[in-house]
Design a protein around this nucleic acid. Structure first.
Length: 406
DNA sequence: TCTGGGGTCCTAGGACCC
DNA sequence: TCTGGGGTCCTAGGACCC
């Protein structure tokens, strides 16, 4: 039996949610009705467009434009900051509503869900359920969604991306030639800005062109990605809706610095701050890291990353920081002006492989206890309740933090 | 003109072992 | 002296997504 899949996609999510929240706070204006964007902070050098209203879109403003560009395209643009706690709140409201239809829901991102409605339709049709969800979200939650209706995830996702906003679209197998093959190849999921020009050079311009291209030829040129794009172009996707929560495969944080930095002391301090965040999140997930990765971006946008496998899995701030610091020194070239610093942990495992020893000589016991105390304080009083006065050697830091909480 | 931050998956090459 | 393949693990980087 064919799968019955819905894809629910919030229209201009960050902007719509901000609008709903503002109205709730008594705002006179609905920022969905004016040229407006949600953007980063230019003074912090993170000035890009995260979401746009329809009016801003009509001016030509695109997601990921710089705010500078957006203002040129649209001089009377209103700009609002992002607020992730609010986005999470509305994302959860949506999820709760969708749970009334099926418990097989994959939260694909903060503003997108796949629903596996197979065996949950009773006497209704999939399309009717799509319309009902579309209406209920608008009426009960105050924002709008597009709903894609199809027999697999890929087609449902493509369908929800047709005309917007507040629409329900089907993409059944027999509709593929008319509704999907006519689209430019850049519209196909998983075809990005690197691949599209290569396809253009091969005279492949529409999704239909791609579908009719010899599969082997694509595989020769693009490897596994070639197989995938050919299958997607032909509407083939056998993947399941992943409704069970999964543990993350990696955890990382990065910052674009307010100013470029060439000073190693400062870079170390930043790496320490980020390592603390990453290690905190790692412990919160009850996971252990086997690999530490450091990323640097220079002022010219040259990215490099180095990584190191650890002798044993860890979740301590100290171990992660010490490794990250080592990597930082290994990769930093004198005189480089650094724009962004990132720390990431990879190869995460559930359980630390405890060393089998007759003596209980856990040399990290001290660190682990300290981390635990700090985590409890952060959980209780907020992440920033526990901060360093200044950068210092990690052993001093350990001592310092101990004194602090006696 | 000035370009975020969080992820996942894949590939290619080198080291090392048999 | 000059020379195999096959396999695994690790690392650096790239492509894509929202």
């Amino acid at each position: 039996m064919e799968k019955q899949i819905l894809h629910v996609d919030v229209n201009n999510a960050f902007l719509s949610w901000t609008a709903v929240e503002m109205l709730k706070q008594g705002s006179e204006i609905d920022i969905r009705q004016i040229p407006a964007i949600i953007g980063g902070d230019e003074s912090k050098r993170s000035g890009i467009v995260l979401a746009k209203s329809m009016k801003a879109k009509e001016c030509g403003v695109k997601t990921a434009d710089t705010i500078y560009q957006a203002r040129i395209k649209c001089p009377n643009l209103k700009i609002f900051p992002s607020n992730f706690p609010i986005y999470r709140k509305y994302s959860n409201q949506l999820y709760q509503l969708l749970l009334e239809y099926t418990d097989k829901i994959e939260r694909f991102s903060i503003d997108e869900c796949f629903l596996d409605m197979t065996n949950y339709l009773r006497n209704d049709t999939l399309l009717n359920k799509g319309y009902e969800i579309n209406r209920r979200v608008r009426e009960e939650l105050g924002f709008t969604v597009n709903v894609g209706v199809a027999n697999n995830k890929l087609l449902a996702k493509m369908a929800s991306d047709f005309t917007k906003p507040d629409r329900v679209h089907t993409l059944w197998k027999e509709e593929i030639p008319e509704k999907m093959w006519t689209l430019p190849v850049s519209e196909l999921f998983m075809l990005g800005k690197k691949t599209v020009p290569k396809l253009y050079n091969m005279q492949i311009k529409t999704i239909g062109d791609l579908a009719k291209t010899d599969k082997t030829k694509l595989e020769k040129k693009f490897g596994k990605h070639g197989t995938l794009m050919w299958e997607y172009a032909n509407g083939i996707d056998t993947s399941e809706v992943k409704y069970l929560p999964e543990k993350p495969k990696c955890i990382g944080n990065s910052v674009t610095l307010p100013k470029n930095i060439s000073d190693m002391d400062k870079l170390e301090e930043i790496v320490l701050t980020i390592s603390e965040q990453v290690a905190y999140r790692l412990r919160k997930e009850k996971l252990y890291a086997n690999t530490v990765n450091v990323q640097l971006r220079t002022k010219n946008f040259e990215d490099t990353s180095h990584q190191k496998k650890l002798p044993e899995a860890t979740d301590t701030t100290k171990q992660i920081y010490m490794t990250a610091k080592e990597l930082l020194h290994e990769m930093y070239r004198k005189g480089q002006e650094i724009r962004l610093v990132g720390v990431r942990v990879d190869n995460l495992t559930d359980k630390k492989d405890e060393q089998i020893s007759l003596f209980n000589t856990n040399k990290n016991e001290k660190q682990e206890k300290l981390d635990k105390v700090i985590d409890q304080l952060k959980n209780k009083y907020g992440y920033n309740s526990v901060t360093r006065a200044t950068k210092m050697d990690v052993d001093d830091l350990v001592k310092f933090k101990k004194e602090e909480y006696k």
